[in-house]
Design a protein around this nucleic acid. Structure first.
Length: 862
RNA sequence: GGGCUCGUGGUCUAGUUGGUUAUGACGCGGCCUUUACAAGGCUGAGGUCGGUGGUUCGAAUCCGCCCGAGCCCA
């Protein structure tokens, strides 16, 4: 029996442990029918440290859905994945063990990663369980585990066999210090001192010359074009000519392009392969030559003639000095500018042409867009981001990464003819660095030596397979077909995720799964916003505004935080708000206390439905409306609307109105209604307040978990809603009367007369307000009414009279109107009764005091 | 710089198709010990809807521009 104050700390921990021990959220592995399975595919969180608010918020929203669908009879598949196959985990390992990945053999380093990650994973597990998320902990995966490596390599092979992958030499961002390609997200801006060099370029076969300012004269040997802005009138005459590069002598075209920054230097710019991102764009847009002057280690190549072999800094000094001697250097001045550096070592990056694997995207963007359209989006507006992303795609997807930790490409190349040798599907996963290729000799040239591909997949190439990993997608060597261990969960019912990863994670997942199965992997996508700080600014270390979930959850119940998380429109950003959590805590207290009262007013055994009194029918019928509303809003993932309506109905209608009356009664009808309503409230609150509802349910009603009970259906009782509303308004008016008269609420009132429809509620009003004598009036009491104004119904008057409305308003304002029986004459216009309402002040002229309660009139004599 | 989103009383929010006095909660003031809850109940004050210009009889709601915030992309 609930007694005393609610103790969330002990209660929440108890249920979190029991839910795990009792496998409360087990997916029924014997399930075969996709229609009764509700499957969730969450993007696995990166294993790189601690839990943040984004996790709490995102997973809590998913949990609302999981619990709601489970109670509606769905067999819920809610797995959990740990993403430990990323650069983040690699760094975590290096940091924890104070090592460098280059110093280890790949499998060795990966083993260390797994050991370090295991600790963080178990910490993550504990925290997720401490949030009460209803995950089935028997269904988990790690993105680096062999099963996932196998799926990733299978995916590569199938797409390769479909002809959707190709290998090409293309520019990549390169760190000359670490000697690896890196992704753009691994670079950062750094402000560094440098020099602008004004160099004189000669126009080929002409006396003409012009000036280019550059910070990187060492790139002159790589120069392949010179660009002028189309609006640059002063230099327009150069377009179409060729320029001769100082010292190196090659002739390059002079081209007009609006990507030139006219404000910097002379407004004329050289394009080198490659100095920056712009050079890459120009190289591709204008089909320019490729001149590689800097190699993997930042050393100049043969293209640089006599400077070959110098590193880029030495080369710069040497070239500048020679330019000066030859008279090409007109000026040299110190500046500071922002350069792209590798975030880890601070070395400025180069753009290098390397062999990379690509997945084709551009040829099928229409299909991928249509796939996105087939999913239901919560909220709908987020589809636009997906759409814009696809429509703006300009590159295929490069999936090669030159890193130590990651899933290897299952590929070898013939040492003689470079022919690609792909691993056998049944042998996956393989690591070409330590495993042998599946053939003894090249099928093309017969050569018997092979070079292992030492690149690994982009982590998104794996992360984009989570639906297939969850469904147990694999290749069956016997039937020679791809299949799934759990086909009933695919496509997934919902993909929950933040709006920050729509363009790459969601998009790549749709593409991959669509290509592998021919089906869109998700029926719906539920997008959550970002958690901001209390001032709506994002939390970041540099701003020092981070609030950790750990410290908050030490102070407040998890259910209170869940209540806060439910306070947002899906897709909107949510500010962290301690007051919102406090409000949740208050609701828990209210629910606990009301439950104690209900318990004291009802017998232990479940009652059969007796003949119900009017007020009981009314409460249960009102509750039906709430059930319909909450169900509808949860279906639409409008959590805050469901939460707020439910809270308001529970607090005000049930506790303030109904319970106050019911606690004065002692009859079967009241007891049945209290029990029924209370059971239903617990169920309706269960998806939100998972712990306290479980505690109350098991204490009061049943041995088994509330989370595995059925979601309530409307009872469909007939009730006089209007009389109930009016009766509650009468009680409210009498409370206000007592409050105004500074009477205590249980003070007696001599006589109350009511004019209005409160049929069936008379005894309830009388009892709860301690009225000695309550009588109903058949006729309106002696009332004098004074017209105080006319209210127009603009939705009727507006369309009808349009621009005449101001005249009508002016007439009413000036009291220049005539009121008929059901018409109004003003400004020469006759208005029908449905176009206006007369505002009256009613004055009671009899004995006692008149109160107005909605449509009812209440006369009090005391 | 581009795309998308958000901006409502001190704080967090409701306000689908434009219609009169803009919803609720937290906080604040006043009153009230009622058979759970004073961390409760009743009640009151507080906003003209980021700014600005427009469309309209009428705009928080539609359109333009500007400002601030968030995400992604450059």
């Amino acid at each position: 029996m609930p007694s005393g104050d609610y103790d969330p700390e002990a209660t929440e921990r108890k249920w979190q442990e029991r839910w795990v021990d009792e496998n409360t959220y087990d997916y029924d592995d014997a399930a075969v029918d996709g229609d009764t399975v509700f499957s969730i595919d969450s993007p696995p969180p990166t294993v790189s440290g601690s839990l943040h608010w984004g996790h709490v918020y995102g997973f809590t929203l998913q949990d609302f859905v999981a619990r709601f669908e489970r109670m509606r009879g769905e067999n819920v598949f809610f797995p959990f994945g740990y993403d430990d196959n990323g650069i983040a985990s690699e760094r975590l390992t290096e940091g924890e063990l104070d090592i460098q990945h280059q110093d280890y053999e790949r499998r060795e380093f990966q083993q260390l990663c797994r050991e370090v990650c295991a600790e963080y994973e178990s910490e993550f597990t504990e925290k997720m369980q401490a949030l009460g998320i209803s995950i089935d902990w028997d269904h988990t995966y790690r993105t680096i585990e062999p099963r996932v490596q196998r799926a990733s390599q299978l995916s590569f092979i199938e797409l390769y066999e479909q002809g959707r992958e190709y290998r090409q030499r293309a520019p990549a961002i390169w760190c000359p210090e670490c000697e690896t390609a890196i992704s753009q997200v691994e670079t950062e801006d750094d402000e560094q001192p440098s020099h602008f060099h004004d160099l004189e370029f000669e126009v080929t076969d002409s006396e003409d010359s012009f000036i280019i300012s550059t910070t990187r004269p060492e790139l002159l040997p790589a120069c392949v074009a010179v660009f002028v802005h189309p609006d640059d009138d002063d230099n327009q005459h150069l377009v179409g000519e060729e320029a001769t590069i100082p010292l190196f002598g090659q002739s390059v075209p002079i081209i007009a392009d609006d990507r030139v920054d006219m404000e910097t230097g002379s407004g004329i710019v050289m394009c080198c392969t490659f100095g920056d991102q712009n050079d890459i764009e120009w190289y591709q847009a204008h089909d320019l030559d490729l001149r590689i002057a800097i190699d993997e280690s930042g050393t100049l190549t043969e293209e640089a003639d006599e400077y070959a072999g110098l590193d880029r800094d030495e080369a710069r000094e040497a070239i500048v000095s020679d330019l000066d001697d030859a008279g090409y250097l007109l000026d040299r001045r110190a500046i500071t500018h922002v350069v792209n550096v590798h975030e880890r070592c601070g070395t400025s990056v180069e753009f290098l042409v390397t062999e990379q694997w690509y997945i084709k995207l551009l040829d099928k963007t229409d299909e991928y867009l249509e796939a996105g359209r087939q999913m239901e989006w919560f909220p709908e507006k987020m589809f636009t981001r997906y759409k814009n992303w696809i429509e703006g795609l300009q590159w295929d997807w490069s999936i090669s990464r030159q890193r130590s930790s990651g899933i290897p490409f299952p590929v070898w190349y013939c040492a003689e003819c470079d022919h690609e040798v792909i691993a056998d599907k049944e042998n996956l996963p393989v690591d070409p660095l330590s495993d042998d290729p599946p053939v003894d000799a090249c099928s093309e040239c017969g050569h018997d030596e092979f070079v292992a591909e030492d690149d690994v997949f982009d982590t998104w190439a794996t992360s984009s397979l989570t639906p297939l990993i969850n469904a147990g997608w694999d290749w069956d060597a016997e039937s020679e077909e791809y299949g799934m261990e759990h086909p009933e969960i695919y496509p997934f019912d919902v993909r929950p995720q933040g709006h920050d990863i729509i363009s790459f994670w969601l998009f790549h997942t749709v593409v991959k799964c669509y290509e592998h199965t021919g089906e869109v992997p998700f029926d719906s996508v539920m997008i959550n916003g970002m958690v901001l700080d209390e001032n709506r600014v994002k939390m970041s270390k540099s701003l020092g505004n981070i609030v950790s979930p750990d410290e908050v959850l030490e102070k407040y119940p998890v259910d209170a935080a869940r209540y806060w998380a439910a306070g947002s429109a899906v897709g909107d950003d949510l500010p962290y708000n301690e007051k919102g959590i406090v409000a949740g805590e208050k609701l828990l207290r209210k629910l606990w206390n009301a439950s104690k009262l209900v318990d004291s007013l009802t017998p232990d055994e479940r009652l059969d439905q007796p003949d119900l009194k009017a007020i009981d029918r009314w409460l249960l019928a009102e509750m039906d409306d709430t059930i319909r509303f909450v169900t509808e809003k949860l279906e639409a993932r409008e959590f805050s609307k469901a939460r707020d309506h439910l809270r308001s109905f529970f607090w005000h209608t049930f506790c303030d109105d109904y319970l106050e009356i019911a606690k004065e009664r002692d009859d079967e009808s009241a007891a049945y209604t209290l029990q029924t309503a209370h059971r239903r409230f617990l169920k309706l609150f269960a998806p939100f307040l998972a712990h306290i509802t479980e505690e109350l349910w098991r204490e009061l009603y049943d041995e088994t978990s509330i989370h595995n009970t059925d979601w309530p259906e409307p009872l469909g009782l007939d009730a006089d809603h209007e009389a109930g509303e009016t009766a509650m308004a009468v009680v409210g008016a009498l409370r206000k009367y007592k409050s105004d008269a500074q009477l205590s609420l249980n003070a007696a009132i001599d006589t109350v007369e009511v004019y209005g429809n409160v049929a069936g509620f008379e005894a309830d009003i009388q009892r709860v307000m301690h009225v000695d004598s309550l009588t109903m009036l058949d006729e309106e009491p002696e009332i004098e009414s004074v017209v105080t104004g006319i209210d127009l119904d603009y939705s009727v008057v507006g369309p009808e009279y349009g621009s005449q409305v101001p005249e009508i308003e002016a007439g009413l304002e000036a009291d220049e109107y005539e009121l008929g029986d059901d018409s109004l004459s003003v400004a020469g216009i006759e208005l029908d009764s449905e176009m206006f309402e007369v505002d009256r002040e009613r004055r009671y002229t009899g004995e006692g005091e008149m109160l107005e309660a909605d449509d009812a009139i209440v006369i009090v004599q005391n």
